[in-house]
Amino acid sequence: MSAPLLEVKHLKKYFDTPSGPLHAVDDITFTLNAGETLGVVGESGCGKSTLGRAILNLHPTTDGETWFEGELITGCSKARQKELRKEMQIIFQDPFSSLDPRMTVSQLIAEPLDIYKIYSNKADQEKKVDELMDTVGLAARLYNAYPHELDGGRRQRIGVARALALNPKFIVCDEPVSALDVSIQAQILNLMQDLQQERGIAYMFVTHNLSVVKHIANDIMVMYLGTMMEKSPAKELFSRTLHPYTQALLSAIPIPAIGQKRERILLKGELSSPINPKPGCRFAPRCPYATEVCLQKFPELEEIFPNHFVACHHVREVNGI
């Protein structure tokens, strides 16, 4: 087996706040192979976006290591960092605020090419921009349009084109379809899948929408307040849901069909604060199965089935394993 494209080891990112360190990402470990998709799901404040940014060194990390193609990239030099950006890109959530309103579509897509001086010849660069616009499905007549003239779906296509411009091997997709209407969302998801098949790009797909990751991901990681609760191959996560939080999360999603009576697990309360978290399982205060040990001791990640990891003291009793 070849080495994974991306290896994240015990990554931590704390933010300093007046009331103490905020544990945004706490000890996350995973690997991602070329051409595959890892879906990272969780609710707001679970640290999923911070994780994506920390991997790209957009946030300096507190602790832990990120390896990319066998190279330790955590804390590498600025110059190396810039080189790495060619290989590792990001697509942002909000296509309304992530594009410079004073640049045209072609300028926006050409910007990465300009920065890295890929083409010495203007004509070649223009050709590449045309090609990228074609790839992401932007009509040629929009070449000189400004972002404000476009709807959300088209703007997000610009975001995709910018990320693709340098032929990266890995893209962090931070809620790329959340701001879009469903009919447009489906168009972008299909586009991203096609690009992955053609170019073998690996995605880390960060989203709160479990239906979307089920559709697009090979593996899914469920986060809660900065920690990994469960990680498993996508199909297995839905057919054999082990962690009480994942079970509750799945049962909470309204299904667009009728006549399917499902047992709903209603969680009590809301997210606790990630600032100075208590020892023990982060989910314990809301967990229907929590006992004394859950409040005292942090549960270690355990491989319950092949490639199916769960961090829960009571996973065996809860699931009758």
Binding site: D151, V182, A186, L210, S211, V212, K214, H215, L250, P256
Partner: peptide
């Protein structure tokens, strides 16, 4: 029908979404 075809589903296995072409 187009709206339903565009939705990634938790309860069904769909390989490829069938989006509505074009824009609103």
């Amino acid at each position: 029908k187009g709206l339903f075809g565009s939705l990634p589903r938790l309860d069904l296995d769909v390989d490829r979404l069938t989006p509505i072409q074009g824009l609103t």
